[in-house]
Computed example of a mutant assay.
Amino acid sequence: MFKETIDFVRGLYDHKEFIPLHEPYFNGKEKDYLIDCIDSTFVSSVGKYVDRFEQMIVEFTGAKYAVATVNGTAALHIALLLSGVKKEDEVITQPLTFVATCNAISYIGARPLFIDVDRETLSLSPEKLEDFLVNHTLQQDGFCKNKVSGRTIKAVVPMHTFGHPAKLKELSELASNHNIALIEDAAESLGSYYKKKHTGLFGAMGTLSFNGNKTITTGGGGMIITNDENIAKRAKYLTTTAKVPHKWEFYHDEVGFNYRLPNLNAALGCAQMELLPKILGNKRSTALMYQEFFCQMDEVEFIAEPSECDSNYWLNAIVLKNREIRDSFLEATNRSGIMTRPIWKLMNHLPMFRNSQSGDLENSEWLEQRVVNIPSSVR
């Protein structure tokens, strides 16, 4: 199985000597826009490309508002603050995620509370979430209280793993019924849809990432998307050092954050957005070829988009029979110049989150032992 997979991936990527997991695709007007930005001298957080990039995200996702930030973690940090999360509050999320999800929660001094994922979506399980909320929380003065810790649960943050949407209808209803804000960590899911609606638009806010390994990149960069005008205005204000708008005076009336995306990065993003439909089409084509190849192997399961979803297939992934086979596969492919990687360590296994409250994490623990990402760059 290892040799067949190595040969297939090499053929897919024109027999390159080294095949990365996911490299950025630059084949548009990136250099032209960057040069134009440099020539304008507006390379920091004020400039036409920031406004244009935000508008392009609005038009593509269907959100009413978009606020660009320096990275996806900053976007999530601000989204959590705007949802009312405070120090010592709790935020429900999944243990199977990139560490940035929990870092953003921790920046506020809040505590992550881990609920299991579904095997189908790799994202937060509505069934496990409902079980926890029904059996371990109560409503008090309009807030959701954790019976075990006594703390207030202010938000729930599903993360759309590898671009595959979570079961957003059920999660949205649960959050609403229990007075919890739904904030989508859509860092990996630009171009992914649940029931024909773009991810990030099912709760109060969603956050995107444009890191160098994402579907499109601005080098760094993130975005808050929302349909709430007041949230958008507040997000822009807080991410711009809480500066009161004025033509020349610098007056700040609260502690803010220097989180606005530089114009130079936004210029790159504008060129990348022009390529996005082509990128998404190419990635879907690659995923379908992988799916057809792996369906012939009993010992491998290719992770396909969940039902009622259109995934962007940011990172393709397979599930192997056990950890021993997974480790052997990782060794064989990487030794052959094909970059593969295991899924993340569970957040509750990391030293800074070991004491966080967790539900039954059976699915997350099962997946942690078996999931491997395989090359997913534009071909």
Rank of each mutant, 00 (worst) to 15 (best):
L76V: 02
T61W: 06
A66S: 11
D141G: 05
T137H: 07
T69W: 00
I92L: 06
T101G: 09
T152E: 06
T93K: 01
Y194H: 11
L81V: 02
V58D: 02
L171D: 03
I92K: 08
P165Y: 12
Q139T: 15
S125Q: 07
K197N: 07
G72N: 07
T61E: 01
E173M: 15
D116T: 09
D116Y: 11
L138G: 04
F98L: 13
L174F: 12
Y107Q: 11
V85D: 00
D89F: 01
A66P: 08
S149I: 08
S125D: 08
G200C: 01
L113N: 07
S83K: 05
D118H: 13
E120H: 06
K64Q: 15
R111H: 14
K195H: 13
T97H: 11
L182T: 12
E173L: 15
A104T: 00
G84A: 09
R151M: 07
T121W: 04
A110S: 12
S172G: 14
F143T: 10
S192G: 05
G142Y: 10
K147C: 11
F114P: 05
F162D: 00
V91W: 14
S176R: 15
A68P: 07
I180E: 00
G72M: 01
F202R: 03
L133C: 05
Q139E: 13
A100V: 07
N135W: 12
K169V: 14
H178S: 09
N179Q: 14
G150C: 13
A166W: 01
A79S: 15
I115F: 07
L138N: 12
T101C: 10
